[in-house]
């Protein structure tokens, strides 16, 4: 294997036993997204209380990278404020799994790694715009989500 491994123990472990795997009925935020290339397909469910994320779950099918990154993302945003999550950067997620190198080395697999973050950003955007009727709070989340990869 090369100097920048992808399939670390952590990734394999998360892909086999994903965190927060499951469904929330009638969640405040629900976003489905898929990656036509890999066939990764996930649904992200988030409940909020005021501005705070109280519960996060996801389900779906995907490759090890997608499953691991989505798992870690759900762990990272649990209990966080929506404002903090809005400012969440792709490096914040990738570095948690030691996958920062993917941005340079694998323009293809980066899509697997960032699918959940894209879904999250779009989901929060829709939450602000459609449910809270607050386009200002939504900010440039939509553009940001679209330009993640």
């Amino acid at each position: 294997m090369s100097a920048d491994p992808i399939y670390t123990e952590m990734i394999i472990e998360y892909s086999r036993n994903p965190s927060n795997f499951g469904k929330i009925e009638n969640p405040h935020i629900h976003r489905h997204d898929s990656n036509p290339l890999c066939g990764d397909s996930i649904d992200l469910y988030v409940n909020v209380d005021g501005n705070k994320i109280t519960e996060v779950k996801f389900d779906g099918k995907g490759c090890a990278i997608c499953m691991a990154c989505t798992s870690v993302l759900t762990e990272m945003i649990q209990g966080k404020n929506l404002e903090e999550v809005k400012n969440f950067k792709k490096d914040d997620l990738l570095s948690e799994l030691g996958l920062g190198h993917l941005i340079k080395t694998s323009p293809v697999r980066i899509k697997c790694a960032l699918l959940s973050l894209k879904a999250l950003k779009y989901g929060i955007y829709s939450y602000f715009v459609d449910k809270m009727n607050d386009t200002e709070a939504a900010g440039n989340l939509k553009e940001e989500a679209a330009s993640l990869y």
Binding site: S2, I6, C38, G39, A64
Partner: peptide, 14 residues
């Protein structure tokens, strides 16, 4: 069994 094809392709590509 439970390994996604893109993970297989990435490993053999190395």
């Amino acid at each position: 069994n439970d390994v996604h094809p893109h993970d297989v392709a990435t490993i053999v590509d190395k």
